[in-house]
Computed example of a mutant assay.
Amino acid sequence: MSALDPGVVAGVAVAGGVGAAVRYGVDTAARRAVPGYPLGTLVINVSGAFLLGLVTGLLASDHLGTALATVLGAGLLGGYTTFSTASVEAVVLLEERRWSAAALHAGGMLLLGVIAAGAGWWLGT
C-alpha cells in the first residue's frame, strides 16, 4: 500500500463520513439524555479510543491488514472522535464557571481515553 493508494483514500473518505454521522447520532442522543453536560463527546472519545486501541492492537498482531486499519483508524474513527469539540466544550464549561464539570470533562476524558485505548490494545493483541 502506497501512501496515496486511491482505494485507501476513497475508503478513508467514505468511512470518515460514516464516522461523523455516527458521532452526530450518539451526541444527539446523549444531549437528550443528559442536558447541560457534554456527555456525548465523552462517550464518543472514550469509545473511539478503545476502538482505535483495538484496531492498532489487531494491526500489531497481524490480525488486520494495513489498508483496512487505515480506513478504520484514520477514516471511521477519525470521523467519529473529536478532540477539538471536547476542547471547546471544556472552555465553555470554564466560561460558565462550572469548574468541576470542566475538570471532569477534560481530565476524565483523558484518563478514561488512555485506559480505554490500553484495554482495546490489550484485547487486540
Rank of each mutant, 00 (worst) to 15 (best):
V12H: 01
G36C: 10
A20D: 10
A33R: 13
A67P: 06
D27K: 10
L4M: 05
P38L: 10
D62W: 01
R23E: 07
L64F: 11
R23S: 04
I44M: 06
L54V: 11
A3W: 08
V34H: 09
A20Q: 12
V43D: 07
G25N: 13
Y24P: 10
L58P: 01
G7D: 02
H63V: 01
A29Y: 12
L51D: 04
A60W: 02
L4H: 05
L51C: 14
V34E: 00
L54F: 14
D5W: 02
G16A: 15
S61K: 09
G48F: 02
G36S: 12
G7E: 03
V26R: 07
A20C: 14
T41D: 06
Y37H: 09
L52K: 01
P38D: 10
S61T: 13
S61C: 04
S2L: 05
L54S: 11
R23G: 05
T56R: 04
A10T: 08
G40H: 07
V12Q: 02
G25A: 15
A67S: 15
G36Q: 08
L4Y: 09
F50S: 03
R31V: 07
V22L: 15
T66E: 14
S2Q: 04
L58H: 03
P6N: 04
L59Q: 07
L64R: 05
L58Q: 09
F50N: 03
Y37T: 04
L42S: 07
L52N: 03
H63A: 14
G65C: 09
D27W: 05
L59P: 02
G17T: 13
L51S: 11
P35E: 10
L4R: 02
G11K: 03
V8H: 03
G16P: 02
R32G: 15
I44T: 07
N45A: 08
G65F: 08
S47Y: 01
G11R: 05
L42Q: 11
A10R: 00
T28P: 06
L4C: 00
M1Q: 10
G16C: 13
A60F: 06
G19I: 06
Y24M: 12
G36K: 06
F50T: 04
V26E: 09
G17S: 08
G16S: 14
L54I: 11
V26W: 04
A13H: 04
G19T: 08
R32E: 13
G40R: 11
L54D: 10
A33Q: 04
A60N: 10
D5R: 02
D5C: 01
T56N: 12
V12C: 02
Y24T: 07
A15M: 07
G11I: 03
S2C: 00
L54K: 09
L39N: 05
G57K: 06
Y24H: 15
A29R: 15
Y37R: 06
